[in-house]
Each structure stands twice: as structure tokens, then as C-alpha cells.
Amino acid sequence: MSSPTRPGIFFLENVDEKVMHSPKSSVFFEIFKKHLTLFFFVYICFGENINSDKIMECSGISCVISCIANVAEIVGVGFAIFGAILAYVQWRHGKKVERNSQMRSLITGLLDDERIYKIILDIDHGRLEGIQGTENEGPVDALLFNLNYVCHSYRKKLVDKDDISLIDYLLNRILKNHEIQDYLDFMENFSKENGVESPFSELVKYNGERKKSINRR
């Protein structure tokens, strides 16, 4: 015998009386097979406490109010999650823009300083001769201090490989230069003798990691 149609439970038409009084899992199964969309609608309204007695007792108005409340709650949670994801994406984008701005300022500063730019060109063309005690020492120190800061930021994950790739050529040419290598070794030994860390220690660490990476290829 078919269950009579009542407000809020019209989708239960043609569900056998035997099924209506069977265990809750059977009710779920029959309703799910016959009315998938409406089953989802009712599940939203009643949540995990859904059962046949509760459905049968539900009046039209109370069902509508209950459904609206539950849907509103679900929508609210959805908006909260979406808002959190959007805020995270915006934060990530903002950090990337900030890092790019810092790298741009660094590169601009190096190129705008005529003495440092001359040193960069001398290194690139193999013309750098002597550092310690020469007129080259000041601009070389300034160049290495800037690059040391970048390597420190990279190790602290304040910048990533994409950021550091902007000066990858510059780093590669400088760290391969024999005069620069000798000067970094000198500063490392001199700092140890005085019980302090080299002012270019981060650059030395980065160079060591770079060499290991090259050897693994």
C-alpha cells in the first residue's frame, strides 16, 4: 500500500509501507533510488538525524523553515571557506609582489652605483685584478654584502628560486671568478681568527650548495 501524500513528503509516494517501517538504512536506500535529488534536499533539512518518523511528522511550513535554516548555515560555511581561500591567495600574491619589488630595488641599486657596476663588468669580462687593499675592495664589499643578504633571505625562505633566478647569471659569474673566490676564502679565515662569522657566510653557503647541485647532475 502506498503512503499518502503529505505536505513536505510528496517524494515518498510509491514507497511501500513495509519499507517505511523497515530499518533506517532501507529507507535511505529506497528514497535514494527513487528520488536522488529530493533525498539530498531532505538530508540537508534533517541532517544526520533523518528518520522516517521525523519525515512523516514534518509539516509544510516547519520543513521549509528547517530547510532554509540548514541551507543558510551551509551557505554561510561555504562563504567562510571561500573567503579564507581568497584571503590566502591574496596574501600569497601580495608576498610575491613584495619580493619582486625587493629584488627590483636590489638590482636597480647595484646597476645605479657606477663603482659597483664597473666591478660587475670587470668580473664578467675577466678584468678584475686584486681586491684586498686596492680601490676595488670597497665596491666589491658592497656588491658581496648585497648578494649575501639575498642568499640569507633565500635560506630563510623569504625569497624562492623564482626570485633568485633574476640574479642567477650575476651570482654565477661572480662566484666563479677566481679573485672573488680568493677574497671570500680570505674573509672566511680572517673572521675565524677573530672569532666571528664571515660577513659573507651566507654567500659561501649558497655557493657550496650550488656546487653540490651541479655535481649531482
Rank of each mutant, 00 (worst) to 15 (best):
G83Q: 06
N51H: 12
D16S: 15
H35A: 09
I31F: 09
V89G: 07
C58D: 01
A84C: 06
I31W: 08
D16C: 06
K18W: 04
V77Y: 03
K54D: 05
S59Q: 10
A80C: 03
R92L: 14
E73V: 00
E57H: 10
C45Y: 02
N14L: 11
I61R: 11
G8H: 09
F10G: 08
F11A: 07
E57L: 09
K34P: 04
G78Y: 01
I68K: 14
H21L: 07
I9N: 12
E30I: 15
L38V: 05
A84Y: 11
E30S: 07
I31Y: 05
I65G: 00
K18G: 15
F46R: 09
L12F: 14
N49W: 01
K18F: 07
S22Q: 07
F32N: 07
V27M: 13
P23V: 11
S59T: 15
S52N: 07
K18Q: 11
F10P: 00
R6D: 00
A69S: 12
I9E: 01
S52Q: 08
V15C: 09
R6Q: 03
A69T: 13
L38R: 14
H35L: 00
F79E: 02
F46D: 01
I74V: 06
K34T: 02
G47C: 03
S25F: 12
L36A: 04
G8I: 00
A80F: 07
V27D: 06
